[in-house]
Design a protein around this nucleic acid. Structure first.
Lengths: 146, 146
DNA sequence: ATAACTGTATATAATGAATATATACAGAAG
DNA sequence: CTTCTGTATATATTCATTATATACAGTTAT
């Protein structure tokens, strides 16, 4: 695994280890919680395909050691990812990238879309916009879509 | 002003006082902060037209006394409403319902709605949702609206 | 002018959720 | 059995939110 900027070292590695494909960079100035940075970065690397299905991820303790944080923090990131179905865990063994689940991503996006729609409904009510008005706006914005 | 359920009393009132048209009911079990409950209820009564333009609202101290809370809490609600243009304040005198600026409110909300729709479009594209799918979701969420 | 109202400004206390942790426990692998 | 792996529970810390008291300043009517 590549932590911070210790990338060059990897060039000379001959053996492959668990988590070698994972890159994590913690930005202390970002304001985002550590567990969330880990969560997001792993998630996007899983979605992008940078990590293979069923590939073993670094252990929560190993990753924590490299990042010099408590393993409970890495655990929290992994937990979140597992809850969302992006990885699976075998206690005593390790954590693995879950097979890609298109439906899962769809569900996630649907949830986000619902949230946006909720906001829109609130706004529409306060300025007396009708359902039809909103639908027309959507129609307009998605003209190019089918 | 009508606080809690002391509504019947109003029936016998002959004189009109500032804030007589305002109804506030604080629900301690709701979980919503007090200032927010006040804010929301006044806002909706202004938008609905239950309160007239330039009508004097109860003083932050008077309202606070009736609600048996600190006047700083009522002030916070009023502050928020003023920031959003729903009321205006004359220091030393009182707070008044702002003249309805329907166009401004509408324009602001339209802009926000457009932004939400843009986000929705992005999400819809990445998970192959059709325009019709989105419209159906909007329809569902706005079932009760006209 | 002065009492009794209005709103304002600043500093402070209380609460609670979010974040990160240590420590003790249990399964897997060599 | 030693050393990995993940798990569970209890705890500390931090920080934004919420609510407050107190001192200040403008307005109004007596």
């Amino acid at each position: 695994m590549n932590i911070y900027r210790r990338l060059p070292k990897q060039e000379t590695q001959t053996e492959r280890h668990r988590g070698d494909n994972l890159n994590i960079l913690i930005d202390n100035k970002s304001g985002a919680p550590i567990y969330d940075q880990i969560y997001s970065q792993i998630k996007s690397q899983i979605i992008s395909g940078a990590l293979d299905e069923n590939e073993m991820l670094p252990s929560i303790r190993g990753l924590a050691k490299d990042l010099r944080i408590s393993f409970i923090t890495t655990k929290r990131a992994y937990e979140e990812l597992e809850k969302e179905g992006f990885l699976y865990t075998i206690p005593g063994k390790g954590c693995y990238v879950a097979p890609k689940n298109v439906e899962l991503l769809r569900e996630e996006n649907l949830k986000k879309i619902e949230e946006h729609i909720e906001e829109i409904v609130k706004l529409a009510v306060t300025c007396n916009l009708s359902k039809q008005d909103i639908i027309e706006m959507v129609n307009f914005s998605m003209e190019e879509e089918r």
